[in-house]
Simulated scan of single mutants.
Amino acid sequence: MRRLVLSLIISVIAALPSARAAEKVDLLLVLAADVSRSVDARKFQLQREGYAAAISDRRVLEAIQAGRNGRIGLTFIEWSGFGNQKVVIDWTMIDGPKAAQAFGDRLLESPRSFADRTAISGGIEAAVAQLARAPFTADRQTIDVSGDGTNNAGRDVTSARDEALKLGITINGLVILSDQPLPWNPEHTNPPGGLAKYYQDNVTGGPGAFVMEAKDFNSFGEAIIKKMIAEIAQAAPTGRQAALPPR
């Protein structure tokens, strides 16, 4: 009788999600979006719509399904000033159109999280924390940082980046260029040498890391499609981009 009870207990425990081995995916990808106050309501909406459309884009889904496992783990976080980071959509397995569409729909329905300063370092730290608690396993872990300005809050962004790189995480960047510099701080969105160079020097790194540019928020959607395809397929992106050597 004891053996029977013990056997039943073991069977129940083994059936629990936490007790099963984590499912294997081809990539763990954190989409980390800047929602600082330089991103006004129109820009925010364009950014959200761009991400939602990209996730369910046919080309992105084809890249996902071409992988060894045919699926990726995806989560979406928003970040702004110091201490302002939020998981908008928790880890989700994307393995086809249905899951991708549901992810995009939830993203469009979720309210904006913040409108504070720009702590890219905090965004990276939050993304690293999410990768550590992912319910899936993958040989590749990538943080996809999009933003329209330099780090101006929280700790030094290069320290946060370097700590992530030591964990084997790749950080890619999608910079959103601004035609009109901020009147109160023009170098925030238009630093010397350009925002793409700032990201290359301070934010991105890891094997195959790259920075892509969206000339403005209106072109963000197509840029994020190219970027996600490159990340999923681990290939150099096409279009306006700068590939980086491993750090």
Rank of each mutant, 00 (worst) to 15 (best):
K98Y: 05
I94E: 01
M93R: 12
F103D: 01
Y51H: 07
A132Q: 14
F103M: 00
R117Y: 14
R112S: 14
N69Y: 12
L108K: 15
A153F: 13
V87T: 15
E78G: 02
F136E: 13
D144L: 00
Q85V: 15
I94R: 05
F82P: 04
A138K: 00
R68A: 09
G81V: 08
P135C: 10
A127W: 09
A52S: 09
D116F: 03
T92G: 10
R155V: 11
L74Y: 05
R58Y: 10
M93V: 12
T142Q: 10
Q85K: 02
R140A: 13
Q101M: 10
Y51D: 03
N152C: 03
R140N: 11
D144G: 02
F76A: 08
K98T: 04
G70K: 15
Y51R: 02
V145N: 06
A66F: 01
G149E: 11
D148N: 14
G154F: 02
I77Q: 11
T75Y: 05
A153Y: 14
V60K: 07
N152A: 04
G154Y: 01
F103L: 01
I77H: 06
Q85H: 07
S110A: 14
T118I: 09
Q141A: 13
A134V: 05
R112I: 10
A100G: 10
A102E: 10
I143E: 11
L107T: 01
A138Y: 08
D139N: 08
D116V: 02
K86D: 15
P97I: 07
A126I: 11
G147H: 00
I72F: 07
G149V: 13
V88H: 05
S146Y: 02
F136A: 15
G81C: 08
N151R: 03
E78R: 00
L74C: 02
Q141P: 09
W79P: 10
L131V: 12
R71C: 06
I94T: 02
K86V: 14
D105V: 15
A119M: 07
I77D: 14
R112A: 13
T75S: 11
D116R: 00
F82M: 10
D144Q: 01
